[in-house]
Amino acid sequence: MTLSFRKFVTSVAVAASMATMALPVSAQTYPFDSVVLTTHSSPGGGTDVFLREMTRYLGKYLGANFVVENVRGGSGAKAMADIATAPADGARFYGTTPTFINTSLLSQPEYTFRDMSGVANVFLDPQVVFVRGASPFQNLGEIVEASKASETAVKFGVTTPGSLDRQVMEQFKAITGAQGPVVTHDGGGELLISVLNGTVDLGIGEIQELAAQIEAGEVRVITTYTKERLGNMPDVPTATEQGIDLVVNKFRGIAGPKNLPDEIYAAWETAIQAVLQDAEFKEWYEAQSLVPAYMGHVEYDAFLADFATEQEAFLKQYGIIQ
């Protein structure tokens, strides 16, 4: 017990020092010793875990220590305001997901993604279509066919109303002419239950959230909305292969205040490219089914602007915003 107590105290001490940051500093020159990465995600949430994991390796490539800060509230509005009003010097950044564009459009906060600049994109989260293990559906074509029987023959499940996956589901229906209600939920967990107990026939989700259920055979992935098949699911076809031209870019990257110095953008671009090659980090992100999708500052800004235009059109079409 004394030994384990000491172990416990040490682990607390180590954790405390990690929280205040004590990663190895390399010879690289970055103008700041420590960099704050802000996320709207709560501790343990998807984005939070991603940022914490990445900064474990990113430190040595950028030459700075990282602190991940969780600024919750207003679905990200607060975190965005923090970054948009921070000095443009390279000390503070924001972990992006489609949420920050969604919140900007939905709630029109004082500071939006337009007051920030994209620094670099890191990953795309593959979005997949899943059904319960015992479901008769094997591909999207069967679903379209079955939906023609009646208005509620096939029920589509998505997460929150303003989410990217609802947009994708509506697009899918528009492209294929499938009919049926698109049922929104409070989050991915509720959607999973709905699929498992048959309330809805299919859902859209991310592999990390579904991995345990997939492994147990409780749910089955029938399609991925990616450009290419996923490495760890070689048998699952993409939507494009099934003749449905739909690729979803659920991005994860870094944004900062507007007009950062060029050398800051450059330092990040180099570091992100390097960290994606890091063997240990690679092992982690491949296990999470994250698809590396590096984009530099200029390209990322354009990508975000396009993404926002598309998202805005969807929100207007479904009357979510005026």
Binding site: S107, Q108, P109, P161, T184, L315
Partner: peptide
């Protein structure tokens, strides 16, 4: 935020009331 459609209700444009 309306739980099903995502429309803002009675928020009067205030982000604080969204949730």
């Amino acid at each position: 935020t309306d739980p099903l459609s995502g429309v803002n209700r009675f928020t009067f444009g205030s982000p604080d009331l969204l949730a």
